[in-house]
Simulated scan of single mutants.
Amino acid sequence: MSEIAGTRPALRWAVHASVLFLVVLWVVPTLGLFISSFRTADQIATSGWWRAIFPSEQNLTLRSAAPDTQVQENGLYVIEGNLFDAGTTARISKWGISSREIDAFEPGQTAELRKGGTVTVQANGDYRMENTEEFTGSRGTRVFVTAELPPEFTLDNYHKVLLAEDSTDSMAKAFFNTLTVTIPATIIPILVAAFAAYALAWMDFPGRALLIAAVVGLLVVPLQLALIPLLKFHLNIGIGKGYLGVWLAHTGFGMPLAIYLLRNYMAGLPRDLIENARVDGATEFQIFTKLILPLSFPALASFAIFQFLWTWNDLLVAKVFLIDASGETTVMTNSIVELLGTRGGNWEILATAAFVSIAVPLVVFFAMQKYLVRGLLAGSVK
């Protein structure tokens, strides 16, 4: 019975489990990156993103108020206040006045200061410093605390990444630079490849089979093999490094896949449809624009997804064909690499920058993913 057409395969559960595994494998890191982009540096350093909604225990270095806030009470100089910012509901479990012994005291205990006087710290962060002599200095006393802090989410990371005045921190310019590279580099190869695919699918001319074989052969040519020769060619003809050069580079590297995908789809369209249009007097251009292009939209959309994702996430081609020393044409991938090199410890900034980088591809993919499978199956079934 298992071999009868129409029955469910015995390993259907394995297929569903594999699909579920792949979905989880993709969704979990993306969700973690999204949550981390709203967390502070201390929270990221002390707990994983899956504990973002729970209180976390952190080691903090805080300061008391400056000596100029001291008052006299019963012959003693007193400084009082709270170590935490207003509205913070943290609870201190251990504290100390030396970086070597940050857990030397319990809340409510009193410690002797090295410059004289005492300090008492309560669990809620309240402190009281007393001394028979006047406190001196321009800064408050350092207090090391181990405290349980409530979960905190902030938009400061996005403000630093997108709106920072420093060009090395802001990704707003890199965002628009990436759009400037990606949109033309997606549209141009689609326009050119659509004409070529129609000719290879429905027009008879000498050498058509050889051209199709050449297109298939170009699919396996490594990208790295053509970078330097293509750059030298651009320099020789006066294009140089710039947006035009990177557009043409992405167009050339994406053309074989575009022609192959669109040609297979167009070749699978009903022949009677094309012949009837010719009998009615339609020119090849009219058949292409009014008949073939509307019917080939799934294939066009599927390639657009691939080309957009590739050019948006590209770093190598942008490094070779764009001048980014001044930061005027820096793309987002290069901006993230620079953040990683200069701010290796600022994981909250890196997480935010990375999520900003993948936000647009996610929107494009989910908006056009219904055409992806239809386009990929182009020409596979007659």
Rank of each mutant, 00 (worst) to 15 (best):
Y198M: 02
P222R: 02
D169Y: 15
T132Y: 09
L200R: 10
T251Y: 07
T251P: 11
T146P: 01
A226L: 14
L269S: 05
V181Q: 06
G268R: 13
S170I: 13
F176K: 06
V143W: 09
T136H: 13
A164T: 00
E130F: 08
A249T: 15
L261V: 12
V192N: 03
M266D: 08
G245I: 00
L257V: 09
P189H: 05
F253W: 10
M129F: 04
A213P: 05
L257P: 01
T178W: 02
R139I: 11
A185V: 01
L231A: 13
V192T: 12
R263L: 05
L218V: 09
Y158Q: 03
E133H: 06
L191E: 01
A214S: 14
M171E: 00
G238I: 13
E148L: 15
T154Y: 00
E148H: 03
L179A: 10
R128N: 05
L211G: 02
L191Y: 02
A185H: 03
V192F: 13
T136R: 12
D204Y: 09
K241Q: 11
A267Y: 05
L262S: 02
L179Q: 12
S138G: 11
F205H: 01
V216H: 09
E134G: 00
V246P: 05
T180C: 15
L211M: 12
K232I: 13
R142C: 09
T178H: 04
P256D: 03
P206L: 11
T168C: 03
A164P: 07
A267S: 14
F205W: 13
D156A: 11
S138C: 02
F153H: 07
I212T: 13
F135K: 03
L162H: 08
I183D: 10
L223G: 14
I239T: 09
D169V: 15
M203D: 09
I212M: 13
L219M: 12
M203F: 10
A209P: 01
Y265I: 07
T146F: 00
G268N: 15
N177W: 00
L227P: 10
T168R: 14
A267F: 13
G207K: 05
L230T: 15
G245W: 01
L149W: 09
G242I: 10
P229A: 07
T180L: 06
I188M: 04
L219Y: 04
G240F: 06
V181N: 14
P229V: 08
L163S: 08
V215I: 15
F205Q: 06
E165M: 04
D204W: 08
F233R: 07
M255G: 03
L227E: 04
A185T: 08
L257Q: 07
L230S: 02
P222N: 08
F135A: 08
L179H: 03
Y158G: 00
R128T: 14
L227N: 06
F233N: 07
V215D: 00
G252V: 01
L257R: 06
T132N: 13
T168E: 07
F135D: 03
A193Q: 00
N157T: 04
L162N: 06
G137D: 12
Y265D: 10
G217K: 07
I239D: 04
L261F: 07
D204M: 05
Y260M: 14
L235I: 15
A172H: 05
I228S: 11
L269R: 10
T182I: 04
A174E: 01
A209F: 02
F153S: 01
S170F: 10
G268M: 11
I188Y: 00
